[in-house]
């Protein structure tokens, strides 16, 4: 039997992305690598109070965007500038051929950081 290309975590995050939508704050969007990612945050006193995403792409990308937004809430806005792609790929067992898509998410985050 061919192994399931999606981990349980990817399936859970893809099926019920609690952070899908638009936050009441600045946003950034990048269309590249055949995917679209839009991130938005609501920040107060240098802290991210709410993070939201919208994405068109594969299940791994959607799951990664959901995991990233969930992690971001409560963090300093500087967290938007961290290079999280490798960690999130490892955590979600994202296949290496999808690296480019995850980097689009990372680049969108960096773009958003520049707007805060």
């Amino acid at each position: 039997m061919t192994s399931d290309p999606y981990s349980k975590e990817v399936r859970r995050l893809f099926k019920a992305p609690a952070h899908a939508g638009i936050a009441n704050g600045p946003s950034a969007r990048i269309d590249a690598q055949g995917v679209s990612v839009e991130l938005s945050v609501e920040a107060r006193n240098g802290q991210v109070e709410a993070a939201r995403f919208r994405a068109k792409g594969c299940p791994h990308l959607v799951a990664a965007a959901e995991a990233f937004c969930a992690d971001l809430e409560g963090q300093p806005v500087a967290a938007l500038e961290t290079q999280f792609g490798v960690d999130i790929m490892r955590r979600l067992s994202v296949p290496v051929e999808k690296t480019g898509r995850i980097l689009v998410l990372e680049d969108t985050s960096a773009l958003l950081a520049g707007k805060l």
Partner: peptide, 8 residues
């Protein structure tokens, strides 16, 4: 659902 999930 996937259209709702995607950017405009």
């Amino acid at each position: 659902r996937l259209r709702q999930l995607a950017p405009a």
